[in-house]
């Protein structure tokens, strides 16, 4: 569709903006760009190549994400594209954007914190917290409980 004239190809910055509208399938309040898994966007002649890195090696959402990215870009008129899996450097929660951290908190998931546990309860803000399990409803989360409001909550664990 965009073949022939190179001027017709949308700029990588534009593509990234479009990808900002593709939600993470398991945590839909953040986008795949917020999550930091889109590592590269480039044109190889007339083929658009998107490099995506998995969060966890066995995360079942990875395939869905690749499909969602492809669908979103086709809807924008990019016909010739390829999603490439890039392993290195491995994904880290440091790549979550600041706005992603705020969105997670507002959604009820405590964002990753360098100390290795959540900073405060995403519901009541208390720092009296107990870890229930280092593993949660998805590979990227742990289960914690607030000792003040007694609510259990998810924590996006550091990796």
């Amino acid at each position: 569709m965009h073949g022939g004239s190179k001027d017709m190809r949308p700029k990588p910055e534009t593509i990234l903006q479009w990808l900002h509208e593709v939600p993470d399938p398991e945590i839909p309040v953040i986008s795949v760009v917020d999550l930091g898994i889109v590592r590269d966007v480039q044109w190889l002649d007339d083929t658009l190549e998107i490099a995506v890195t998995p969060t966890y090696s066995g995360c079942p959402a990875t395939r869905i994400i690749a499909l969602d990215i492809e669908t979103a870009l086709r809807d924008k008129g990019v016909a010739d594209l390829r999603v490439r899996t890039q392993l290195s450097p491995p994904w880290t929660t440091d790549w979550l954007t600041d706005s992603a951290r705020e969105k997670l908190q507002a959604y009820g998931i405590a964002p990753p914190h360098p100390a290795g546990g959540p900073k405060s309860c995403p519901r009541c803000g208390s720092d009296q917290l107990t870890r229930m399990s280092q593993f949660g409803s998805t590979p990227c989360k742990a289960q914690w409980r607030c000792d003040a409001c007694l609510e259990p909550f998810d924590y996006f664990k550091c990796i």
Partner: peptide
């Protein structure tokens, strides 16, 4: 929940 998570990683 933990064991299938570890299984998934493996």
């Amino acid at each position: 929940i933990a064991l299938p998570n570890i299984a998934l990683d493996l």
